[in-house]
Amino acid sequence: MRRIFSGIQPTGNLTLGNYLGAIRNWVALQGEKSYECIFCVVDQHAITIPQDPAELKQATREVAASLIAAGIDPTDSILFNQSQVDEHMKLAWVLGCVARVGWLNRMTQFKDKAGKDRDNATTGLWWYPVLMAADILAYKGTHVPVGDDQKQHLELARDIAQAYNSMFGVEFFPLPEPQILGAATRVMSLRDGTKKMSKSDASDMSRINMTDDADTIANKIKKAKTDPEPLPSEAAGLAERAEARNLVTIYAALADRTVDEVLAEYGGQGFGKFKPALSELAVEVLGPIGAELQKLMADPAFIDSVLAKGGDRARALAKPIVEEVYDTVGFLRP
């Protein structure tokens, strides 16, 4: 059985980028019975930067509710929050003793997030990829849906798995394979088409949140940055037009069409006609998800019960795997 593991941080509202780049693909994978799907709200990763404790709990519930509203079925897939399952941290320490400092120092995401003041960055931010490897390997995950920004971390997880197997002379951990799916795996900011749409961007106008209502979605698309030229008739005409390419790509992904198919319909037209069409489509797709999300958030006890049941199921899978690792390493378990 092929086992998929993927996680998402509970920091800020989930965006259209999260939906098109990850969540929608998770829902599709869930329907393929050749996979066992494990989806995790990675609240332990979230505290690599300071979080308000009450807000973190609320955000964890909101992300879980967003996943359910978007189509993740917690009775089919396993859905839980990371901190419930101690095996993640237990395995992370062992894997941290396998990983090399040089490997972690090469992680570009740490360099980007730490910036110039690296000495004041937390060790958790630096060590984050080891915990990510443990998240995957605690379940012997074979496939991981990832965006471009996480490919390097997955490569590190493969290196760690291979190093562990070699160190102890076993063929225990599989080398997880990346899955990069969907037409809009990298949705860009509505204010700057060269930057990824991010829930941490200071400007709320840069993104469409899954919690936005119809009027808000329409207003953000109306004010999205564009250029004065009409849309081209072929995709090649978008090469040097980052904002135009982003909006057309979003439309194509929401409509489940190719960029060329969209341009065949809208090529030669200006954004005065294209933006209203995009707004209508975005509301049509995201509206029902947002409504279901609000309904779920009105019942936090239900969300908590879903996460608790998912945690029990996840723990049942991870516990024997980590116990075997502890035996292999030589830890005495009387």
Rank of each mutant, 00 (worst) to 15 (best):
M89D: 15
V63D: 11
W103Q: 11
E62K: 08
L79S: 02
K113D: 10
A99P: 12
L95P: 09
P74R: 04
L91E: 12
S66C: 11
I47W: 09
A114L: 14
N105D: 12
S83I: 02
S66Q: 01
K113F: 05
P50Q: 01
L56F: 01
D76L: 15
L95Y: 06
P53I: 00
I47G: 04
E87F: 00
K57Q: 15
C37P: 08
K113P: 13
C97I: 06
T48I: 12
N81P: 08
P74G: 05
V42C: 08
C97M: 14
V85H: 04
D43F: 09
D73N: 05
A59M: 08
D86C: 02
A59G: 07
I72Q: 09
Y35I: 01
T48W: 07
D76C: 13
V42R: 04
S34H: 13
K90N: 15
K90E: 15
E55Y: 05
V98H: 09
V42H: 05
A46R: 02
H45W: 11
S77M: 06
E87S: 01
T48A: 09
C97A: 09
F110T: 03
V42W: 09
R106T: 07
L56H: 05
T108M: 05
A99C: 04
V42Y: 06
Q84V: 00
Y35A: 03
T60W: 03
H88R: 11
K116M: 15
I78R: 01
L95D: 03
D52E: 10
A99T: 12
A65K: 10
D73G: 02
D73P: 06
P53Y: 02
Q82R: 01
T60I: 04
G96E: 12
W103L: 07
S83L: 04
D86G: 11
V63P: 14
R100Y: 15
S77L: 05
D43G: 07
L95H: 04
S34P: 04
K33H: 08
A64I: 05
A114Q: 08
M89Q: 15
H45M: 05
I68H: 07
S66T: 12
T60C: 04
V63L: 05
D117L: 07
A54N: 05
H45D: 13
W103H: 11
D52A: 14
Q109Y: 04
K90I: 13
